[in-house]
């Protein structure tokens, strides 16, 4: 379980997260929607400890992410992350991209790591691209590569930071399909997204972020068909 209590985050004078309380249960898919600059992505960075926080706490399976004694490198093995800019490692082939972290972080043998990597690439539909360098892959394929790379660490949670926002429209579908499969397999996911269709169809709950707070949270049906907050209504009217 991921549990966030009274989280505040500043970038200098900018108050980006202004008191976030949130819980994500095992097996749950939470979609986070909201305008750019509302703090959605920052929340993900605070969950896996890439960004420090100024107040409040994030507990992942009871471990305080921002406690000084927490071994972040160990904790991050539980938290797979997929970025908007897919960030494939350009100097490594697809299979090396995926196998590297299991090998050097989890200390698997090379052959074991390669096996895991091949399996995960197969899983995201890149079984025929094992020895291809990322520059020969499309954006959608690179994003699926990034998903396979995160999955190879056998994480308990997956954090998606606008995984489809940087893709050409015709490539969005293949990445969303991959995410859908993950959700059906029972992966716990937090998806920051602008894909309202995905949020509606796949999520168990949807959170609407507005200016650094959770303005409204509920089931997809409730948020999309019967939003309570004026801000949520305004936002949904704009994106529809």
């Amino acid at each position: 379980m991921i549990r966030i209590d009274g989280l505040h985050k500043y970038f200098g004078d900018l108050h980006v997260l202004r008191g976030i309380d949130l819980e994500v249960q095992k097996g749950e898919v939470l979609s986070v929607i909201g305008a750019s600059g509302s703090g959605k992505s920052t929340l993900l960075y605070c969950i896996n400890g890439i960004e420090p926080v100024q107040q409040g706490s994030v507990l992942v399976d009871g471990i305080d992410v921002h406690a000084k004694t927490t071994d972040l490198n160990r904790l991050r093995q539980r938290l797979g992350m997929v970025f908007q800019q897919w960030n494939s490692f350009p100097h490594l082939t697809a299979i090396q991209n995926v196998a590297l972290a299991p090998q050097i972080v989890k200390k698997m043998s090379k052959s074991e790591a390669m096996e895991v990597a091949a399996k995960q690439l197969e899983h995201v539909g890149l079984g025929d691209k094992l020895n291809v360098f990322p520059n020969a892959l499309s954006g959608g394929q690179q994003q699926r590569l990034a998903i396979a790379r995160a999955l190879a660490m056998d994480p308990q949670y997956m954090l998606f930071d606008e995984a489809t926002s940087a893709l050409d429209p015709e490539l969005v579908g293949e990445v969303l399909d991959t995410m859908r499969v993950l959700a059906e397999e029972g992966m716990t996911m937090i998806c920051v997204t602008h894909e309202m269709g995905f949020a509606r169809d796949v999520s168990d709950r949807v959170a609407y972020f507005h200016e650094g707070i959770v303005e409204e949270i509920g089931s997809p049906e409730q948020i999309f068909s019967d939003p309570k907050s004026e801000q949520t209504k305004k936002f949904l009217a704009k994106v529809r």
């Binding site: 490198n73 991050r76 960030n87 972080v105 990034a146 995160a150």
Partner: peptide, 13 residues
């Protein structure tokens, strides 16, 4: 890009 470092760290490196 600084995001390369972030991606590496997010994998637990």
């Amino acid at each position: 890009p600084s995001t390369q470092l972030r991606a590496a760290r997010s994998l637990g490196m």
